[in-house]
Structures are given as structure tokens and as C-alpha cells.
Design a protein around this nucleic acid. Structure first.
Lengths: 140, 140
DNA sequence: CCGCATCCTCTCGGATACTG
DNA sequence: CAGTATCCGAGAGGATGCGG
């Protein structure tokens, strides 16, 4: 157990070292790739889109709009385009009348969803604690 | 390997089922706790703040501002307050002159950073692929 | 059915100056 | 040093109507 904690801490330090060790924050990089990639992949709407596409392997535009309730046409359209450009999802249009368009995760997208799920599942199970913290904090 | 893939897929389905299975998207919850908690914890600036606090166990306001380069006083202050309210970090003020304030992760915050790191480390290692995708997409 | 174009609102966030 | 107060601009995002 003790060693587990130690391993965890060491593991954390290693990853952080790899992530931040090389950064010269006195003279910061104009475009940090991690920030850049993260800004797409950790967007609220994008996360929900990806997770629903993990739940239902194939979804059409209006189905997605129902599941990701509250999202507007414009934003859904934007996010889908960006997610496709970044390689997380694929888009197939069938030239029927009316047109049918299907979205699904790429292999890369699936890998990302798996990572994402570890985080969101953890957040879901801990959200009561966070909300409790928040209320307690509000009372002081 | 085959079974690994299967296990992975099954695992994914289970988590997604647990996350989405109960949602009546026809009549969506006004405030989804997961969305709510996520909106704080997956904020761009908050992530960077938490990661830097994982890297350096104790940091003061202006140090943080240097490491999380580009952040403004206002936003840093806001994020720190929210992160404290949600229980990720603790704030200690020493009544010296001039005043000294130290921020550090709580145990809960450390646990979250560990989860976060799995994701961001993955993103860092895959960011070249994403950027390559993006450029290829732009050329079509 | 899929999504773009338009308009319009409104919040977020940056810059600066100031205080305990 | 650690923020707060104020102002201001940009741009994200919602609603709607149209077109392929």
C-alpha cells in the first residue's frame, strides 16, 4: 500500500516532468500543442458528442442533437467538423433524398473515448462529494 | 489480445451505460451533475493550474501566474476560488507583510490530477497525430 | 434531413489601476 | 504580494429561416 502510494507519486512526477520540464515559461511557446489539442478535445460539447458516439456506434445529426440536449445546430455542426478534422470521428453522407449522414468514432476516437471515460466516470462517482464541498464552502 | 479488445469494449459499454443509461433525453435534467462538475474541472485554465500544482506541491499566486502563462489576474483569481470551493485545492494565507498566500492540492485534488494526467499525457503523446490529421484535412 | 447564413445577444475574459 | 474594481472589446453561442 505504502509502495503503491509511492509509485503513484513517482508516476505523477514523471508524467508532469515530461509535460512541463521542458517549458521555458519565461519565454513561453506561442502555440503549445497540448493546449491546442486540449482546447478541442476537452470542450464541453465535444466530450458529450464523443461519449454518445461511444454509446451508440452510429448516429445521425438529429439523433445527436437529441442526446446532446441543449446544443444548437450551429455548435453541433462546428464541433462535428472540428472533431472530424482532428481525426476523432468519421462522417459518411449517403446521397439519398432526403440526405442521410452518419457519424461514428474512428479507431483513434475510440481510444480517446476510453481515456475520457476513465475521467468522466471518476467525476460522476465523485460529483456528490464536489457538490457537497461546494455547498459547505458557500455556508462559511 | 482479442480478449483484451473485447474486454475494453465491454468495459466501455458498461461505463457508458452507467453514465447515460438512466437519462431521459426527451425530458432532460435541468442541471446534470456531471455536466456541472465537468464545467469546472475540465476548464482549460483550471486544468493547467491543477497540473502545475501537481508539479510543484506548493505555489503562490504570482508563481502560478508565471507558470500558467497568459492567464490574467482576474481569471486566475476566479479559478482558484472555484477550485477551492469544489475541494480540489486548499488556500493558506499567512498574515505577514507583505501577505503570503500558498496554494496546494488537497488529497482529492491529487486524485483528480492523477486521473487528469492519464488523459493529458495521452493527449501529449498523440498531439502530433492530431495536428497531422488536421493539416491533411485542410488540404482536401 | 442536414446544415449553412444571418443576426443579435451576452457572457467571458483581457488590461489597467488601485487597495489592504 | 495578493488580489479587487472597473471598463471594454471580442467572440461564442442561441434562434430562426432558408437551400441543397
Amino acid at each position: 500500500m505504502e509502495t503503491n502510494v509511492d509509485n503513484q507519486t513517482v508516476n505523477r512526477s514523471e508524467k508532469l516532468e515530461k509535460m512541463f520540464g521542458h517549458i521555458d515559461y519565461q519565454n513561453p511557446p506561442e502555440l503549445c500543442p497540448v493546449r491546442d489539442v486540449m482546447s478541442v478535445a476537452s470542450d464541453q460539447w465535444s466530450i458529450l458528442i464523443l461519449l454518445w458516439l461511444g454509446y451508440f456506434p452510429v448516429l445521425r445529426f438529429n439523433k445527436l442533437k437529441k442526446y446532446v440536449y441543449g446544443i444548437s445546430n450551429k455548435v453541433l455542426s462546428q464541433r462535428l467538423k472540428t472533431l472530424e478534422a482532428d481525426g476523432y470521428i468519421s462522417r459518411k453522407a449517403y446521397p439519398e433524398v432526403p440526405i442521410r449522414v452518419e457519424y461514428e468514432l474512428t479507431a483513434f476516437g475510440e481510444a480517446y473515448v476510453d481515456k475520457l471515460l476513465e475521467l468522466t466516470a471518476w467525476m460522476q462517482s465523485h460529483s456528490p462529494k464536489v457538490i457537497a464541498n461546494r455547498q459547505k464552502y458557500g455556508l462559511e
